[in-house]
Computed example of a mutant assay.
Amino acid sequence: MRILHVLTTLDVGGAEMHVLKQVQGQVARGHEVRVAYLKGQGTLEPDFRAAGASDVRHVPGGPLFPIKLRGLLGWCDLVHSHLLKADALTSAAVLLAGKRKRYLSGKHNDEQVLNRPLVGLVHGMIGRVPARTIVLSDHVGRFIEEKGRVPRTRQSRVYYGLDPAPFEEAARSVDRAAILAEFGFAASDVVFLCVARFARQKAHEVLLAATAEARRTNPSIKLLLVGDDPFGDERERAFAVARDLGLSDAEGRGAAVFAGIRRDVPSLMAAADVFVMASRWEGLGLVFLEAMATSRPVLSTTVSAIPEVVVDGTTGRLVPPDDAAAMAAAMVELAGSAELRSRLGTAGHERVIERFGLDVMVDETLRVYEEVLRRSGHGG
């Protein structure tokens, strides 16, 4: 099968990392894969090439996009777009190329812009173009049906999958003290790690306020923030909040450390004690699976698909969104009991193995592809 993936960006993010793993798995099963992206710095372009994509190219969005994509559409048996801008432009391109019956859309999040009635109405028309829409959680499926006006009968749900091996290995071999020392933390500190792009969705200001409040009870609580904001100023906004709260100095160090984008996330997960994210919404959250694969408990919110992944009281703690006091209380509870952290982390690891395996994700996605090709009259 010749598969074309079209993404809005190839910069670091949950959707992009998800597609990277899909590409790797699809190539390993003998399929040829090419990738196009519309904008951004293309940070992950080398990673997609290393995963086996035979072609990775920047195809700028705009009125000429359908023409620019024509060659790739002529090559592929099936095209799969990801994220709203890529969905909209790819829909136009496949209609012009006559490939509607072999086109799928991937929904990675409950995109809040769809709450606007006019946007939802337009999306409902665009959402009828793909032969199938793959959603990554039941919550996203319900949201896309209600707000994006794509019926569940046109959807297939495929959970994110994860190869736990790099995270399990990191948990076995990490030099925790050395990693923590890099950020100015002591081995006796209880480190909460957040890996997320800086955006309103992730509510970093709530997490920072919770950290400041929790530290009044337990000063050993520290916060490590990994990520950046390549398209805006949300990182600078969070940095200002941290300074105002007395958590960080002018260099982004202190009780809250801004570490930027890192390539050693498995080691950071293993060195941390708890993974934390104050999300206002999430399609699923690949980083939750990464933390659970490292046997780390998760502290997050009760929104969107997070309860499909993190079981409150079993694999972590979930609190209401935008509630810094509730999050602070959970931080204090988790920081105060190594036994509790160990129990929740062990249960999380077991849940990843049972329900969110990488092979399951790749194989289920390919089954959807094959069904689309059969219905189109094209042999898969």
Rank of each mutant, 00 (worst) to 15 (best):
L4H: 04
H5W: 09
T8F: 02
T9S: 00
A15H: 05
E16K: 03
V19S: 12
V23H: 10
R34Q: 14
Y37K: 08
L38K: 09
T43Y: 02
E45S: 04
F48T: 09
V56P: 12
F65S: 08
P66I: 00
G71T: 06
V79G: 12
V79A: 14
H82S: 08
L89E: 14
T90N: 12
L95R: 11
G98H: 07
R100L: 03
K101E: 03
Y103E: 09
N115K: 15
R116S: 09
R132P: 01
D138S: 12
D138R: 13
D138K: 12
H139C: 01
R142Q: 04
I144P: 01
V158Q: 15
Y159T: 03
D163Q: 11
A165L: 14
A171L: 11
R176K: 14
A177M: 07
A177K: 14
G184V: 06
F185V: 04
V190E: 04
K202N: 01
A203H: 07
E205D: 15
A210Y: 05
T211P: 14
T211N: 14
A214I: 07
G232E: 14
D233Q: 12
E234D: 13
A242T: 14
A242D: 09
L245Q: 10
D249Y: 13
A250Y: 03
V257P: 10
F258Y: 09
V265H: 05
P266Q: 05
P266K: 00
L268T: 02
G283T: 07
L284Y: 14
L286I: 15
A291T: 00
T294P: 10
T301C: 07
V309L: 08
V311N: 10
V311E: 11
R317W: 06
R317K: 15
V319L: 04
P321Y: 08
A328T: 06
V332G: 09
V332A: 15
L334H: 06
S337F: 10
G348F: 02
R351C: 09
V352I: 13
F356V: 05
M361N: 12
L366I: 03
H378K: 14
